[in-house]
């Protein structure tokens, strides 16, 4: 098992935001972490990336509790941009190269070339869509065991969405896994092996995507809408 959450609970003050989460992530699969805004997706992702502390339970990566060791094998795309806007593309790549042992510089430049992105360009001079693409390239250029992408499709146009999905598909390394959190399900459901429904801090369902379609005779998007009708 690549990643395992065991009875994980997280509270902010007294409010329970994740309630006894049990989750297993296998090697070589793409998971969709699907939930409405505020369901607890980003909190769970931050716990897995050791950016928040767990109140109860534990998270194991390759059988060991998460920490510095797991960070070097998990490539994480946060929901919000973290790049220094004054940096040029080239210096950002250098920064990643120094920071992450598993960073594949060749791959990053190849992906940048496909995008026609000038390496001397300042981040602040790039469009929002371009910045999102650059961040995805940086994250996918690591030869990680687990990629965690928090809302990679938020706020981008449909053409950029296609680019992002293609980049995820063509760059995730064989045997590694991907967790994609999103509420934009119809755009992404085709590439998922497994779906995880999360609502009000609880895991409602985990299932093989095709089995779920077969059982419910509908799309994941439709099943999600039915389950979480407001």
């Amino acid at each position: 098992m690549l990643l395992e959450c065991k009875n994980v609970t997280k509270k902010f003050d007294k409010k329970v935001v994740l309630d006894n989460i049990n989750l297993k992530i296998e090697k070589g699969k793409i998971y969709g972490l699907l939930g409405k805004n505020g369901a607890g997706k980003s909190t769970l992702i931050k716990l897995i990336n050791d950016l928040l502390t767990i109140d109860e339970g534990e998270i194991l990566f390759n059988g060991k509790p998460i920490g510095i060791f797991s960070k070097s094998h998990i490539s994480y795309l946060p929901e919000r941009t973290y790049l220094d806007k004054d940096m040029k593309v080239e210096s950002v790549i250098k920064y990643f190269e120094e920071f992450y042992e598993d960073f594949n510089t060749k791959k990053a430049y190849k992906l940048l070339k496909d995008l026609d992105l000038d390496k001397d360009k300042k981040i602040s001079k790039m469009s929002k869509g371009m910045q999102e693409k650059l961040q995805l390239i940086l994250v996918m250029s690591r030869e990680a065991e687990l990629y965690i992408l928090d809302e990679p499709l938020g706020g981008v146009d449909p053409a950029t969405r296609d680019y992002i999905l293609d980049t995820i598909l063509s760059n995730f390394k064989e045997g590694s896994s991907v967790i994609i959190s999103t509420h934009l399900i119809s755009d992404i459901e085709r590439i998922l092996d497994n779906v995880i429904f999360i609502d009000k801090g609880k895991i409602i369902l985990t299932e093989d995507a095709d089995k779920l379609r077969e059982k419910e005779k509908s799309s994941i998007d439709e099943i999600f809408r039915r389950s979480f009708k407001c």
């Binding site: 070589g28 999905l165 293609d166 598909l169 085709r190 590439i191 998922l192 092996d193 095709d210």
Partner: peptide
Amino acid sequence: VRELALMAKVNPNTMQK
């Protein structure tokens, strides 16, 4: 498998299946 998966824009595991 990977090429076919990319052509269809699906997960390689699904194509393998």
